[in-house]
Amino acid sequence: MSRIERRFELLRTEGRSALLTFITAGDPDYDTSLAVIKALPEAGADIIEIGMPFTDPMADGPAIQLAAQRALKGGQTLVRTLDLVRELREQDDDTPVILMGYYNPIYIYGVDRFLADAKEAGVDGFIVVDLPPEEDGELCLPALRAGLSFVRLATPTTDDARLPSVLANTSGFVYYVSITGVTGTAVPDFDAVAASVARIKRHTDLPVVVGFGVRSGDHAAAIARGADGVVVGSAVVDALRNSLDAEGRATENTVPAVSALVRELAEGVRSVSKDT
């Protein structure tokens, strides 16, 4: 059983949904981001998504765009992102880690080498925004062969006719994008999201998590009623950003600020108990 499967299995026995938190690797520098990530499980994150910074994040709103810029300015590279995971694994061998980003840095690193290095570092899966099912030969199928998960995004534009092809090679869980739009720019319609999650669940037995636009513990609780997990990205990244000094450097408040928000989100998720 993979770390992801074990985690969802555990949560089912606890009768609750998962909290997935996103943080950009190297934002605003390597050491700070390592400290932030190491504090996430303790604060209540069940699964950690680590953003691989890219110069041209076409699917992201301003918060995550700026986080990527800060990280790149701080010298973050894909090699250093794998280092982060490796260092996290020294203290935590249970929390699943998903790398999230865009294809070009992986393509340039070399797909086979990347998969081998990621697996060795302790990565569990990938979400690569610009690789739809039509491009499965690039990374999705090689990742599955290497024993790593490839998590697919389903969106409000993914209709019933298309859903089977989106779900075909997805593994670990399915990530439902709650809005049409970029990350962190709109609050989803919770009823519509619940209906969509139910629709996806008719097509798959995999856990379905929901992200894009979740900002508070209340949002998280609203989503957790129908979904197996709640992803929070821009709000966490904003909490980090708001803790930086005028020059964009980390302060002693950076790790506590992120942890505080994650604790609030975790309370929201845990306030909803689910029948098993």
Binding site: M58, A59, Y103, V129, D130, L131, P132, P133, E134, E135, R152, L153, A154, T155, P156, T157, T158, D159, R162, V166, V177, T180
Partner: peptide, 8 residues
């Protein structure tokens, strides 16, 4: 190479 939202 586009996001799923744009694929349809």
């Amino acid at each position: 190479f586009v996001a799923e939202t744009l694929m349809p």
